[in-house]
């Protein structure tokens, strides 16, 4: 089996997929770092100070002003009120929620990348894992070896899991290393709050506790890896089902983007919470942001994703083992 996995990793590496992914991450992180830097500068100019306390107070005033506006949907108002409570909590407890520094950048990067950017990178590897062999015809040469079909597919899936780990590692290391050039490398010990629970309109702060930022980042990385594996598995399934890599990419992209759009408008369509694509923002539960549909929790979302992933894996293996290859 290890020889088969070696074969699959060799093909992924020689297709230069991982380099492309590393380059994409590096370019985007540099871009975001610059944007973040400009924003910090702008804020400093506007407030005339870099004191985070002033910034936070300013944000709170902003929020309060926006809440005055009469033409606002009930949902949005609810959300803003929750944010307001959260920020007031930070201020009262003398905690800087976005202390600059590479770890903070890394944390927000993962939070923003979890539902679209990281799954996209995983797709780059997963989409053509099987479909490219089918469309190029090399699948025939693989299947006429003295190796059972399920072992061939399993070796490809293990190679995918290894690639996902590598992608997570690259995202973490590159976002830390590159943003650190501008923001400095300190800040791992910064205490953060977690455990906010949404209960209707109220932000339940009963379970709020402090954890150091490095722990927070590790949790987020784990959640991002989980999401990436599930999205990778679903992409892998489509890669088995379809010969065309472009079609696989198209379907998965449509699903991911529809997830981003749906999350903003499904609050009254309750059964939508069983769709995998509205459950991708797992880090929001840690951050304490409102879920797209009431009643969704971290455990619920992870269970939904796990079921989708397992189903995808079963379909992939079943089809691959039964199928006639032309």
């Amino acid at each position: 089996m290890s020889k088969l996995v070696y074969n699959e990793m060799l093909k992924i590496v020689r297709k230069k997929r991982l380099w492309v992914i590393a380059a994409i991450i590096a370019v985007l992180v540099a871009l975001f770092t610059y944007a973040q830097y400009r924003e910090t500068e702008e804020l400093r100019k506007r407030l005339g100070t870099t004191d985070w306390r002033t910034q936070l107070q300013q944000q709170i005033v902003d929020l309060q002003n926006r809440l005055q506006s009469p033409s606002m949907s009930e949902e949005w108002r609810k959300y803003l009120q929750i944010r307001l409570k959260q920020q007031q909590y930070y201020l009262e407890h003398n905690i800087n929620p976005s202390a600059p520094g590479a770890p903070t950048f890394m944390r927000t990067f993962i939070e923003n990348a979890i539902d679209l950017f990281l799954p996209l990178l995983v797709m780059v590897v997963a989409a053509d894992l099987v479909s490219s062999e089918a469309s190029a015809g090399t699948i025939k040469l693989l299947l006429v070896r003295p190796v059972k079909r399920w072992k061939i597919l399993l070796s490809k899936y293990i190679a995918l899991l290894l690639s996902v780990s590598l992608i997570m590692l690259m995202a973490a290391v590159l976002s830390y290393a590159i943003s650190g050039l501008v923001f400095g490398y300190g800040g791992f010990r910064l205490p953060l709050l977690t455990g906010f629970v949404q209960q209707g309109e109220d932000l339940n702060t009963a379970n709020v506790h402090m954890i150091p930022q490095w722990k927070y980042i590790l949790i987020e990385l784990g959640l991002a890896a989980f999401v990436s594996v599930v999205v990778g598995t679903l992409t892998f399934m489509f890669s088995v089902l379809l010969r065309s890599t472009a079609a696989v990419m198209g379907i998965m992209l449509a699903a991911l983007i529809s997830g981003a759009i749906l999350s903003n408008m499904v609050s009254s369509w309750h059964s939508a919470k069983y769709l995998f694509m509205v459950n991708l923002r797992l880090t929001d539960y840690i951050k304490g942001a409102a879920p797209p549909i009431e009643g969704m929790t971290l455990g619920f979302s992870m269970a939904v994703l796990a079921v989708w992933g397992l189903a995808g894996l079963l379909v992939a293996f079943f089809v691959f083992m039964q199928r006639d290859v032309y």
């Binding site: 020889k3 020689r14 190029a136 090399t138 025939k140 040469l141 006429v144 003295p146």
Partner: peptide
Amino acid sequence: IRQIGCIVENPEMYPYLTGWENLEHFARM
């Protein structure tokens, strides 16, 4: 299947690998 060697239709190989690497790839199986 161990007793069989075959080419079905065109002999498609991995174009981004060398001939040797292609053979090595199949030898590992």
